[in-house]
């Protein structure tokens, strides 16, 4: 009986350690979003993006606190939080999706791989399907993920008042850059 219990525990342990090696994460990923118009270029940086990637299934998730975006101008940051994304009501943006060509990526071999990503992006309480392609770089047991995609503000019910509509582009580009470490449970 005792032996059996030990065996079960051992199996469970083995199982969990297998799970752990498949998953990679970071809590200090970077997201930059940029709006470019002839009037003004606006850029905001966030350096505490959480990202988890399951290399076995290709499942991928991001989360970022909206208040963590830093702008060059304090007033932009105030308007971003107070008027546009209403970060007190919707503190987080999230992405939940999958690398659709996960089978083509060899996470055990160093190299650059093109990754096609598909999933659901939630900003300002609105969820939309997004699709983009990025790169996965495997190097010495670490994984780098990069992607750029375009987001139309209107899709997420972010209203830009008429008086500044020439200063803020209707579509902003979002650049994600994460360096992932193995997740040990």
């Amino acid at each position: 009986m005792k032996k059996l219990v030990v065996a079960i525990i051992a199996i469970l342990f083995a199982a969990s350690s297998v799970v752990a090696q498949d998953k990679y994460f970071t809590k200090s990923g970077k997201i930059v979003f940029a709006s470019k118009t002839s009037m003004e270029n606006i850029e905001a940086h966030n350096k505490s993006v959480t990202c988890v990637l399951d290399t076995k299934t290709g499942n991928m998730q991001f989360a970022v606190l909206m208040k963590g975006f830093e702008f060059e101008k304090a007033l932009m940051q105030e308007h971003f939080n107070e008027n546009y994304v209403e970060s007190h009501k919707f503190p987080k943006a999230e992405f939940k999706g999958q690398i659709t060509n996960n089978g083509e990526i060899n996470y055990t071999k160093d190299g650059n791989y093109i990754a096609r990503v598909k999933g659901k992006l939630t900003i300002h309480g609105e969820t939309r399907d997004v699709e983009t392609s990025g790169t996965v770089t495997v190097k010495g047991g670490k994984i780098e993920t990069d992607a750029v995609f375009q987001v139309a503000l209107a899709d997420y019910k972010i209203e830009i008042p008429g008086i500044v509509k020439d200063n803020i582009s209707k579509t902003v580009s979002i650049t994600v850059d994460c360096s992932l470490d193995p997740l040990k449970s």
């Binding site: 988890v52 990637l53 399951d54 499942n59």
Partner: peptide, 8 residues
């Protein structure tokens, strides 16, 4: 399909 974010 698990919530990966919960893991961290």
């Amino acid at each position: 399909e698990e919530d990966l974010l919960k893991l961290v």
